[in-house]
Amino acid sequence: MTRISLKDIFSLASDVVSLATERDLTIATAESCTGGLIGAAITSIPGSSAPFKGGIIAYDNAVKANQLDVPEAIIETHGAVSEEVAEAMAQGVLTALETDLAISVTGIAGPGGGSEEKPIGTVWIGLAQKSQPAKAALFNFGDIGRNKVRDVTCYEALKALKAALSQAQ
Protein backbone atom coordinates (compact mmCIF):
# COMPACT_ATOMS: atom_id res chain seq x y z
CA MET A 1 0.00 0.00 0.00
CA THR A 2 1.33 3.41 -0.89
CA ARG A 3 2.10 5.85 1.85
CA ILE A 4 -0.78 8.19 2.70
CA SER A 5 0.22 11.64 3.91
CA LEU A 6 -1.79 14.30 5.70
CA LYS A 7 -1.49 16.34 2.52
CA ASP A 8 -3.26 13.52 0.63
CA ILE A 9 -6.03 13.40 3.23
CA PHE A 10 -6.55 17.17 3.26
CA SER A 11 -6.50 17.32 -0.54
CA LEU A 12 -9.31 14.76 -0.68
CA ALA A 13 -11.21 16.59 2.06
CA SER A 14 -10.92 19.78 0.02
CA ASP A 15 -12.29 17.97 -3.04
CA VAL A 16 -15.20 16.62 -0.97
CA VAL A 17 -16.09 20.08 0.35
CA SER A 18 -15.82 21.64 -3.13
CA LEU A 19 -17.96 18.96 -4.80
CA ALA A 20 -20.62 19.01 -2.08
CA THR A 21 -20.77 22.81 -2.17
CA GLU A 22 -20.97 22.94 -5.99
CA ARG A 23 -23.79 20.39 -6.00
CA ASP A 24 -25.53 21.96 -2.98
CA LEU A 25 -25.43 18.63 -1.10
CA THR A 26 -24.99 18.04 2.61
CA ILE A 27 -22.81 15.38 4.19
CA ALA A 28 -22.32 13.70 7.57
CA THR A 29 -20.04 11.10 9.13
CA ALA A 30 -20.48 8.17 11.51
CA GLU A 31 -17.10 7.10 12.82
CA SER A 32 -15.97 4.27 15.03
CA CYS A 33 -12.32 3.26 14.49
CA THR A 34 -11.28 6.70 13.20
CA GLY A 35 -12.68 8.52 16.23
CA GLY A 36 -13.54 11.70 14.33
CA LEU A 37 -10.59 11.94 11.93
CA ILE A 38 -12.84 12.15 8.86
CA GLY A 39 -14.90 14.97 10.33
CA ALA A 40 -11.70 16.72 11.45
CA ALA A 41 -10.25 16.50 7.93
CA ILE A 42 -13.43 17.89 6.39
CA THR A 43 -13.75 20.73 8.89
CA SER A 44 -10.12 21.73 8.35
CA ILE A 45 -11.24 23.05 4.94
CA PRO A 46 -12.49 26.64 4.80
CA GLY A 47 -16.14 26.72 3.78
CA SER A 48 -16.86 23.23 5.10
CA SER A 49 -19.71 24.53 7.24
CA ALA A 50 -21.91 24.82 4.14
CA PRO A 51 -22.01 21.09 3.23
CA PHE A 52 -20.89 19.38 6.46
CA LYS A 53 -23.68 19.04 9.01
CA GLY A 54 -21.75 17.01 11.57
CA GLY A 55 -20.79 13.59 12.68
CA ILE A 56 -21.36 11.01 15.35
CA ILE A 57 -18.40 9.22 16.89
CA ALA A 58 -19.89 5.84 17.74
CA TYR A 59 -17.00 4.03 19.36
CA ASP A 60 -19.20 2.08 21.75
CA ASN A 61 -21.91 -0.29 20.53
CA ALA A 62 -24.48 1.44 22.73
CA VAL A 63 -23.84 4.68 20.83
CA LYS A 64 -24.24 2.82 17.53
CA ALA A 65 -27.61 1.52 18.76
CA ASN A 66 -28.88 4.66 20.55
CA GLN A 67 -27.59 7.47 18.34
CA LEU A 68 -27.42 5.78 14.93
CA ASP A 69 -30.34 3.40 15.33
CA VAL A 70 -28.22 0.33 14.51
CA PRO A 71 -30.32 -2.65 15.65
CA GLU A 72 -28.62 -4.42 18.54
CA ALA A 73 -29.53 -7.74 16.91
CA ILE A 74 -27.36 -6.83 13.90
CA ILE A 75 -24.42 -6.03 16.17
CA GLU A 76 -24.90 -9.29 18.11
CA THR A 77 -25.30 -11.39 14.96
CA HIS A 78 -22.63 -9.89 12.70
CA GLY A 79 -20.36 -8.00 15.10
CA ALA A 80 -19.61 -4.29 15.27
CA VAL A 81 -17.12 -4.65 12.42
CA SER A 82 -19.37 -5.87 9.63
CA GLU A 83 -21.01 -4.88 6.38
CA GLU A 84 -24.41 -4.74 8.04
CA VAL A 85 -23.27 -2.43 10.83
CA ALA A 86 -21.38 -0.11 8.44
CA GLU A 87 -24.49 0.22 6.28
CA ALA A 88 -26.76 0.79 9.28
CA MET A 89 -24.34 3.42 10.69
CA ALA A 90 -24.29 5.33 7.40
CA GLN A 91 -28.07 5.20 7.08
CA GLY A 92 -28.46 6.14 10.74
CA VAL A 93 -26.36 9.30 10.53
CA LEU A 94 -27.94 10.26 7.19
CA THR A 95 -31.34 10.10 8.87
CA ALA A 96 -30.32 11.62 12.21
CA LEU A 97 -28.59 14.64 10.68
CA GLU A 98 -30.92 14.90 7.66
CA THR A 99 -28.19 14.99 5.02
CA ASP A 100 -27.95 14.01 1.37
CA LEU A 101 -24.94 11.71 1.79
CA ALA A 102 -23.25 10.03 4.73
CA ILE A 103 -20.13 7.95 5.22
CA SER A 104 -19.43 5.50 8.04
CA VAL A 105 -16.42 3.53 9.20
CA THR A 106 -16.09 0.60 11.57
CA GLY A 107 -12.98 -1.48 11.93
CA ILE A 108 -10.18 -2.99 13.97
CA ALA A 109 -7.24 -0.61 14.17
CA GLY A 110 -5.21 -2.68 16.65
CA PRO A 111 -2.95 -3.42 18.30
CA GLY A 112 -5.48 -5.81 19.88
CA GLY A 113 -9.01 -6.83 19.04
CA GLY A 114 -8.33 -8.83 15.90
CA SER A 115 -9.31 -12.43 15.31
CA GLU A 116 -8.73 -15.04 12.62
CA GLU A 117 -12.04 -14.09 11.03
CA LYS A 118 -11.52 -10.33 11.44
CA PRO A 119 -7.80 -9.57 11.74
CA ILE A 120 -6.31 -6.21 12.66
CA GLY A 121 -6.71 -3.85 9.72
CA THR A 122 -10.20 -5.10 8.81
CA VAL A 123 -12.40 -2.07 8.04
CA TRP A 124 -15.87 -1.61 6.58
CA ILE A 125 -16.74 1.73 4.98
CA GLY A 126 -20.43 2.44 4.50
CA LEU A 127 -22.09 4.98 2.25
CA ALA A 128 -25.70 6.14 2.40
CA GLN A 129 -27.49 8.47 0.00
CA LYS A 130 -31.05 9.71 -0.05
CA SER A 131 -33.39 7.40 -1.99
CA GLN A 132 -30.77 4.63 -2.30
CA PRO A 133 -30.00 1.66 -0.07
CA ALA A 134 -26.83 2.02 1.96
CA LYS A 135 -23.86 -0.02 0.81
CA ALA A 136 -20.53 -0.93 2.35
CA ALA A 137 -17.11 -2.01 1.15
CA LEU A 138 -14.57 -4.19 2.93
CA PHE A 139 -10.93 -3.18 3.27
CA ASN A 140 -8.10 -5.29 4.67
CA PHE A 141 -5.23 -2.95 5.46
CA GLY A 142 -3.28 -5.48 7.52
CA ASP A 143 -1.47 -4.94 10.80
CA ILE A 144 0.29 -1.74 9.69
CA GLY A 145 -0.03 -0.02 13.06
CA ARG A 146 -3.01 1.61 14.76
CA ASN A 147 -2.50 5.15 13.50
CA LYS A 148 -1.76 4.05 9.95
CA VAL A 149 -4.94 1.96 9.87
CA ARG A 150 -6.88 5.02 11.06
CA ASP A 151 -5.21 7.34 8.52
CA VAL A 152 -5.72 4.97 5.59
CA THR A 153 -9.34 4.44 6.65
CA CYS A 154 -9.88 8.21 6.70
CA TYR A 155 -8.31 8.49 3.25
CA GLU A 156 -10.41 5.67 1.75
CA ALA A 157 -13.61 7.05 3.30
CA LEU A 158 -12.95 10.49 1.82
CA LYS A 159 -12.16 8.84 -1.52
CA ALA A 160 -15.50 7.00 -1.43
CA LEU A 161 -17.35 10.18 -0.48
CA LYS A 162 -15.65 12.09 -3.31
CA ALA A 163 -16.63 9.39 -5.81
CA ALA A 164 -20.25 9.45 -4.63
CA LEU A 165 -20.36 13.25 -4.82
CA SER A 166 -18.84 13.16 -8.30
CA GLN A 167 -21.72 10.97 -9.48
CA ALA A 168 -24.45 12.81 -7.55
CA GLN A 169 -26.93 14.91 -9.44
Results as ranks from 00 to 15, higher is better:
Ile27Phe: 06
Ile27Gly: 00
Thr29Ser: 14
Ala30Thr: 09
Glu31Phe: 03
Gly36Met: 01
Leu37Met: 15
Gly39His: 01
Gly39Met: 01
Ala40Gln: 11
Ile42Asp: 04
Ile42Tyr: 00
Thr43Pro: 11
Thr43Phe: 04
Ile45Cys: 02
Pro46Asp: 02
Pro46Thr: 04
Pro46His: 02
Gly47Arg: 12
Ser48Glu: 09
Ala50Cys: 03
Pro51Lys: 11
Lys53Gly: 03
Gly55Arg: 01
Gly55His: 03
Ile57Phe: 00
Ile57Trp: 01
Tyr59His: 09
Asn61Trp: 03
Ala62Val: 13
Lys64Asp: 10
Lys64Thr: 07
Ala65Arg: 11
Ala65Thr: 14
Leu68His: 11
Asp69Thr: 05
Asp69Phe: 04
Pro71Ala: 13
Glu72Pro: 07
Ile74Asn: 12
Ile75Cys: 05
Ile75Arg: 00
Gly79Leu: 01
Gly79Arg: 10
Ala80Tyr: 02
Ala80Asn: 10
Val85Ala: 06
Val85Lys: 08
Glu87Phe: 00
Ala90Leu: 09
Gln91Thr: 13
Gln91His: 09
Thr95Cys: 03
Glu98Gly: 03
Thr99Ser: 06
Thr99Cys: 12
Ile103Gln: 02
Thr106Tyr: 01
Gly107Leu: 10
Ile108His: 07
Ile108Leu: 14
Ala109Trp: 07
Ala109Gln: 11
Gly113Ile: 07
Gly114Cys: 10
Ser115Phe: 06
Lys118Glu: 14
Pro119Cys: 12
Gly121Phe: 08
Thr122Tyr: 02
Trp124Asp: 06
Trp124Pro: 04
Lys130Asp: 08
Gln132Met: 13
Pro133Trp: 04
Pro133Arg: 15
Ala137Thr: 14
Leu138Val: 06
Phe139Asp: 02
Gly142Arg: 03
Gly145Leu: 06
Asn147Asp: 15
Lys148His: 13
Lys148Pro: 00
Val149Asp: 07
Asp151Gln: 15
Thr153Val: 08
